[in-house]
């Protein structure tokens, strides 16, 4: 996995796992690979991966089971929330950048609706 070295690695790992859960690659109730295996998969330090997992355990997205490893939560509401959080994050990025270029709110909305239409037409 390619990291952006300006952003804490544990956050990037957390983000990577969040996306896997939202996209369904890791389904509710699935067992996560071992910490060491994850470390090898993303090419990071075991401690850093452990820290990312701890954060996710605090958020209850991941549930540790003694002696059996870590599991994705079966609480679909939590996953739904996570999904919304991610959408917010992405929009926040775009919004900030466009506002910085002096686009007005209504312009942004219009452009976005138009953009989705075009992309949707392309994909059909």
């Amino acid at each position: 996995m390619k990291f952006d070295d300006k952003i804490p690695i544990y956050l990037q790992i957390q983000n990577y796992l969040d996306r896997q859960i939202i996209s369904g690659e890791l389904a509710p109730g699935d067992r996560l690979p071992s910490v060491r295996q994850l470390a090898v998969d993303v090419t990071a330090n075991v401690n850093t991966v452990q820290r990312a997992l701890s954060e996710m355990i605090d958020e209850k997205i991941i549930v540790p089971q003694r002696g059996r490893g870590n599991f994705v939560t079966v609480d679909v509401d939590l996953i739904a929330q996570l999904r919304l959080k991610l959408v917010d994050e992405q929009f926040a990025l775009v919004y900030d950048q466009l506002r910085a270029l002096n686009f007005s709110d209504s312009e942004i909305i219009d452009k976005f609706v138009e953009y989705v239409k075009d992309r949707g037409a392309l994909n059909e």
């Binding site: 990291f3 070295d5 090419t43 990071a44 330090n45 401690n47």
Partner: peptide, 9 residues
């Protein structure tokens, strides 16, 4: 540094 930075604690 950059070749190992993601690895370091």
């Amino acid at each position: 540094v950059s070749e190992i930075s993601s690895l370091l604690d």
